[in-house]
Write a protein that binds this DNA or RNA. Sequence first.
DNA 1: CAATATTATGCTGTAATTTGCAGGATTTTG
DNA 2: CAAAATCCTGCAAATTACAGCATAATATTG
Lengths: 209, 209
Amino acid sequence: MSLNIPDTRQRELAQRLEHGQQIIATDVAAEFDVSIDTIRRDILSLEAAGKAERVRGGAVPLARPASPIHARLATAAPVDMGLVNLAITAIGSAQTLLIDGGVTTLALIAHLPDAADRFVITPSPWIAIACQERGIPVFLLGGALSPSGGIATGEETLGKVLNVAADIALLGACGIDSEFGLSSDIFEESQMKRAMQRSAQRTFIITDR
Amino acid sequence: MSLNIPDTRQRELAQRLEHGQQIIATDVAAEFDVSIDTIRRDILSLEAAGKAERVRGGAVPLARPASPIHARLATAAPVDMGLVNLAITAIGSAQTLLIDGGVTTLALIAHLPDAADRFVITPSPWIAIACQERGIPVFLLGGALSPSGGIATGEETLGKVLNVAADIALLGACGIDSEFGLSSDIFEESQMKRAMQRSAQRTFIITDR
DNA sequence: CAATATTATGCTGTAATTTGCAGGATTTTG
DNA sequence: CAAAATCCTGCAAATTACAGCATAATATTG
């Protein structure tokens, strides 16, 4: 079992708040298998430490004079934590990860255990930044940034992806079942995803359906 | 089985902490077949040696000091807007911009006029995201992300920079007057900056002194 | 080898922390 | 307004930390 003490929980919660997620007391209580009171006290601590804004039912990240990036991250759509945990167990101890862009993969980085032992290769600047915040070494795949998905694409990038060998590829599903029709951007992206899939021993596609 | 002495145990525990694992005192006590007190004392030693952070129930790896760039963003360092405006007039209507990482260049993106007409090439994922939010087409230079400054570096990246032709290069000054001595990261970064300078017709170094 | 010093370990009793729960007050919702 | 949910306060139980001490193991010295 993992250490379930105020310190650990609060660190985890603080991290989620940092990433713009909101804390729902009852959910988190269930997740950590403690009573709501305990989570309430955790939130009180976080508030005292200036790391959370307490609201009825839980806590939200405190508003901060946001730099552009943080603004974007703060407004991020709510992430399905169950999905994230599933993906994390799927990853296991794999060392070399090829990670696609997307809100779910982004949230995943924040909760990836054994950060020190990983190595991430990604075409997404968001993922790159998230990894750096956790001290995970990153190789950033260069290329023209696709406007829709925000990942690097292009001939050369494609070639590079095919040259790496990753243990696991984590792909977001968005863009595969394109709602936009098949614009050239989407085409570039899906081609990229396919290349990533080919370079990894195993592939997980993260989708909620 | 190996020797069960403080030295051996502590080495093992230190290794686990290095790998990001947390130490649960009661579990480890059972594992090494010693009393909890003994493990407690081991953890005290590790803490004294600066290898562990003691918490109730065991120990956790010590919190990694935030990377410089992230720390700067987190504290919402006030950006010298005068500097930003100066740089913007300097840029004028130049189309192809080679932009370095840094808080000031990041702030600049948000205020860059004529966004539609620009094209940005950058080794910084931060800059890339900021540009994308403003709808500026970006070419992201790939490479290993340097932990200190958060820009892509490496042999290949260097080569690519030298192959592009930009109107203006905007360089941050940080890392040139390194406070950290000349670590290899810093070296990589400054090499990168030099390469960027060489690929642009004109260069501006953004610094407040 | 014997005597001594040092270190490591386990145990005990006491203090501090954490947790869940019961009750009543407060807020939200229909 | 009434019902439900959430918040707050105080408290008792469980867990863990801590300091002191006695014993066992190991190292050192003569």
